[in-house]
Design a binder for these strands. Structure first.
Lengths: 215, 215
DNA sequence: ACGGTTCAAGCACGTTCGTGCTAAGAAGAT
DNA sequence: ATCTTCTTAGCACGAACGTGCTTGAACCGT
């Protein structure tokens, strides 16, 4: 064996460099040369760990998806362990939803990277697989959360997917606004919007509309 | 005077070429050479109408912002002319909100371009001004709409901005999902989510939370 | 001591990009 | 017919990009 180097750790260092570049300069600036510079390596060294630029980006996408999904699963486990309706439960729900938002430095970087990759995946086929995995993972957690929070436990299938998508859309929209218009979108507004949404989720749906949806 | 050419019309043709490229290949592919090809011109010709690549992109951003803002104003005028609570009124509100979503080919192109520019504006200072204008224009319409739809007419200032931001976030989130995950996000789901949101908007807020927000 | 494997670094090639500059053509004004 | 000005087109340069390939250096098992 050669020089002892933890290959996986090195790869992660390079990926972290990719994250920093995307967060500050955007995905289009995440070239091999820029990444190598940011990581303190030479281009050839980065290419030793990642066969191509595409592989580096796809792997980076995967890492951020795993991170976000892991945070959501952890936060959901906390929610799941608490008594529904209790103060701690509500706080845990807000904490879970806050994992989507750029509320601190680390979350902001991940949110930037996540957004950038998802939008890039619309165009670049290599990113499609990770984008689909990302969507499934997040939708699963949000779906379970909505099922837990809805008054009827999500017994009406159509209404459940509608409410899950509604929460997901609000979360992504909030995240987007927090990233793109940070001066208008403070953490306080985010919290107010989320609590307002949770209020509407708990309230029973108007029967008029449920009937309308059935037709 | 030389060859008679409607300069403004030519500029618009070039801008339309930019839109098509962004919608199909993304903003990073909207180079002068690609745009010139798509518009059936030479690079020098495009540069005759736009001094630089930046000017072309900024102007294109402005055009799409004007288009979207115009559509929203028109749709709001329709809403404003109808009796609140009537069936036509509700339909007009849905039509207004639908202007944000890629429900047909033209709307889809505009939504793609709009999203691409807004995200690019996070990084590129030249786009900041148009991004801010875009946000103000849209927020103004959504704010007026929310004021009109809320049961108390938006008398509580804090609650009004929260609800406006909540609707805006949901709209942008829906638009994003419709663009990025078209297979999961059909027009029907969009409509269901919007109607569900409107139901929650009309319902009075729980006094518990209003008090909580005040503290 | 030494061969083999892994790591780090760099060169070179072709492509694409924005942009400064030049030049030919087209048409109204004189 | 000539001049002027707008229009269209193209060349050339430097910069940045991905990538194939080569070159040392480091290190471990034998």
């Amino acid at each position: 064996m050669p020089k002892i180097v933890d290959a996986e750790a090195r790869r992660l260092e390079v990926v972290e460099a990719v994250f920093r570049i995307i967060a500050t300069d955007g995905l289009e600036r995440a070239s091999l040369r820029e990444v190598a510079d940011e990581a303190g390596l030479a281009v050839g060294s980065v290419r030793h760990y990642f066969a191509s630029s595409d592989e580096l980006l796809v792997h980076s996408f995967g890492v951020v998806v795993d991170r976000i999904a892991g945070r959501l699963e952890d936060a959901f486990a906390v929610v799941d362990s608490l008594e529904p309706g209790s103060t701690e439960h509500d706080a845990a729900v807000l904490t879970l939803l806050g994992q989507f938002l750029p509320l601190d430095e680390e979350l902001a970087v991940d949110a930037c990277v996540w957004m950038a990759f998802r939008h890039a995946a619309r165009i670049r086929p290599v990113l499609e697989k990770e984008a689909a995995r990302s969507h499934r993972a997040v939708a699963a957690v949000v779906g379970r959360l909505v099922m837990r929070l809805m008054p009827d436990g999500g017994s009406v299938q159509e209404h459940l997917v509608t409410e899950a998508e509604r929460l997901l859309a609000t979360l992504d929209g909030l995240c987007m606004h927090a990233l793109l218009q940070p001066e208008w979108m403070t953490a306080e507004v985010c919290r107010d919007v989320l609590t307002a949404h949770l209020d509407t989720l708990v309230a029973p749906p108007s029967t008029v509309n449920v009937k309308a949806h059935r037709e």
